[in-house]
Design a protein around this nucleic acid. Structure first.
Lengths: 197, 197
DNA sequence: CACGACATACCGACTGGTTAGTCTGCCCGT
DNA sequence: ACGGGCAGACTAACCAGTCGGTATGTCGTG
């Protein structure tokens, strides 16, 4: 009986992170006070500053979690044994599904990145670039082997697709007509269709 | 000699709006203090609150300007005398060029919309929807006449394209290798290629 | 096994600083 | 002499982070 103080079974740091994620997504980083976060997590400021160095650290932790997850999944799909069209399609569809599954994290990611201090921002951008480059390598591989059109630079292709992923948090509603998988299939299909020679 | 107090020739309200636009884009809405805005415009708070009701009104005015401009241009291209592929391509490319030309407004638009109060937010969303629907009508027209594939719902097509427009403020750099027109041509081309039957 | 020393986990009042918006009044053109 | 245009001091509220304090557990030692 040392890890949780009240009825809730999950440990305090994770409760804080979950509360912060929800509140940052709902109200934005600047409009969420530390007081609100600790109240939502059922603790006090003492607990938060015991586990985290600052409010900003909380935000960075949200990013780190998302980036780790997406990079792992991309690597898995990209390195699979399959023709390039299949690998790109799978990777493109997967990032859509996982983004919808973590829509809170996604809106925080795209809306609040500029709230990070320059150093942390640089770090996050660096990991983001790794992701971008792995994806671009897939496009280039297909272009070299003649499966994809070379009419458009690979960089632009990647930004085109991630624009639509980025945009999901603006328009996708879980109670809408399309399931996450259907949206993912459509968006991956659009990408592959645009790449036909 | 009643309209401007110092050496700057432009009237005070426009100076305030310009300063606010730049600062909101650079630092975000919440992180920009009213004090900074008035200093950048070379006036004081008295002047700002003489012309605007609140800090939020400034933000809304930025939106209103952008929305008016883009809606006008879309209507012009959409109602032109040309085959549907041409009209859609022109409209899709134009929104890219004007977004890049007003990249500050664009980043504010997409990053700070949720800072508006519910009523103003609803109003902006309404005008946004009008734009979306006019664009969607173009896609549907092409689908009905068999020029565009019907594999993807028109709504999704529109969100796909505007995702990439939205995303521009994240990656486009004026000192990069591509001119605004080149980016616009590429993105419009990708859209049209994805729509090939 | 008893006991003190130290560590971990957390509480909550407090501080120093910032901010949006107000208000009184001056200045100047008409 | 009147009113639009604006200055700038002021206020009331808020907020991130600090700090001294408490409770509970762990570990080494005689």
């Amino acid at each position: 009986m040392a890890k949780e103080t009240d009825g809730n079974g999950t440990p305090v740091p994770q409760r804080l992170l979950a509360a912060a994620t929800r509140l940052f997504a709902e109200q934005g980083y600047d409009r969420t006070s530390v007081q609100e976060i600790v109240e939502a997590a059922g603790v006090t400021k003492g607990a938060l500053y015991h586990y985290f160095g600052s409010k900003e650290d909380l935000l960075q932790e949200v990013y780190a979690r998302v980036l780790r997850l997406q990079q792992e999944r991309l690597d898995a799909f990209a390195n699979a044994e399959a023709p390039i069209e299949q690998r790109l399609r799978d990777a493109a569809a997967d990032v859509v599904v996982t983004t919808i599954d973590n829509l809170d994290d996604a809106s925080i990611f795209f809306r609040s990145m500029h709230h990070l201090s320059p150093e942390k921002n640089k770090q996050v951008r660096g990991e983001r670039r790794r992701y971008h480059e792995r994806f671009r390598a897939l496009v280039e591989e297909g272009q070299r082997s003649g499966v994809f059109s070379t009419a458009t630079p690979a960089d632009l292709i990647v930004d085109y697709h991630f624009g639509s992923v980025h945009h999901l948090s603006t328009w996708y509603r879980p109670d809408g007509p399309l399931t996450p998988q259907e949206v993912a299939d459509h968006l991956a299909d659009l990408l592959l269709r645009a790449l036909r020679p």
